[in-house]
């Protein structure tokens, strides 16, 4: 199984972003996704700077994929999307049908992001016809659905699963970080850069519930599918996506690297769980509520 470093979902200071990927160049991940997928206002790096970073990571032996913005609202965002899709060299992860349309018109193969909503084999077949070469399973799909999709896919088209990270649960026109600060979105001053792991939302009785990340809401719990690596491998999943977090990402990668070689290593599984900020979940994979933790027994053992 291959490991992929998913696109950075948070807004980090520029130096932090550069040093993060400098380290990632030496991590045991085969694939690195780059680019801003949440909010076009962040502009921490320009497209040219992302491309420079991509070249650098490629020379370090990584397969680099450029990820597109998920929610496109303004004409200027479409312009930026077209430039990214027509970069002429690097693979692109399409996170909206707009990107699929541009890439298909250019005759370029692509990776389908989790928000393309590939829920059934017929959808998969249509997108394969448009140039889909790998796809990320929609977050809320379960093991049986994944198996059926993989069985129906041509051998040349592989499936990637979101194996580690806070789950992106929704996108909005509204910025919830700005709202938390009582600021208008147009005057946000990129305040989300103060929350390198997003901002915790708890219920009124203190249960950690969601994470605010600008226009995106995420889970508070970290989805951890590491205990199910053998099951995922048997289902035919070929790539595990690890979503960046502010601290301990090197350890997360190291744990997954060890587990893909020795999936039964309980000590590593426990160490991994301790790297989640407020606990782990794996419900979606088992067809349950996303926040369920079916690997509970493991924690206690």
């Amino acid at each position: 199984m291959q490991l992929a470093l998913g696109p950075l979902l948070y807004c980090w200071p520029r130096e932090q972003v550069l040093s993060f990927y400098e380290q990632a160049a030496g991590w045991p991940v085969e694939i690195v996704y780059l680019g801003e997928v949440v909010c076009s206002k962040r502009r921490v790096l320009s497209l040219d700077e992302w491309l420079d970073l991509a070249k650098h990571l490629e020379s370090a032996g990584k397969q680099v994929v450029l990820s597109t913005l998920t929610l496109l609202e303004a004409g200027s965002e479409l312009g930026a999307l077209r430039r990214l899709c027509r970069n002429g060299h690097f693979d692109v992860e399409a996170n909206d049908m707009a990107a699929v349309n541009i890439l298909a018109a250019a005759g370029v193969e692509f990776i389908g992001g989790p928000t393309l909503n590939i829920y059934n084999p017929r959808t998969l077949a249509v997108l394969v016809g448009q140039g889909l070469r790998r796809w990320v399973l929609p977050f809320e799909l379960s093991h049986p659905a994944a198996s059926e999709l993989i069985n129906a896919a041509p051998a040349s088209c592989t499936c990637e699963v979101f194996a580690w990270g806070r789950l992106p649960l929704s996108w909005s026109a509204r910025c919830y970080t700005a709202r938390a600060e009582n600021r208008a979105k147009d005057q946000c001053e990129i305040i989300c850069r103060n929350d390198p792991d997003g901002r915790l939302v708890s219920t009124r009785e203190g249960q950690p519930f969601l994470t605010i990340n600008g226009v995106q809401m995420q889970s508070a719990l970290t989805q951890d599918l590491a205990p199910w690596i053998p099951e995922m491998e048997a289902a035919g999943i070929q790539v595990l996506r690890l979503s960046p977090q502010y601290s301990g990402m090197d350890e997360v990668v190291e744990c997954f690297d060890r587990l893909r070689r020795d999936p039964g290593d309980q000590e590593v599984l426990r160490r991994l769980q301790s790297l989640a900020a407020v606990g782990v979940c794996d419900g979606y994979w088992h067809g349950e509520a996303g926040f369920a933790n079916t690997a509970n027994g493991l924690q206690q053992s």
Binding site: N117, Y119, L169, S170, A289, G290, F291
Partner: peptide, 20 residues
């Protein structure tokens, strides 16, 4: 308030969403 078709808040808590 969320982009429809991409909101999983309900299934995160109940296993059932508008999509599924």
């Amino acid at each position: 308030v969320m982009a429809e078709g991409r909101c999983l808040l309900s299934s995160y808590v109940t296993g059932r969403s508008p999509n599924t």
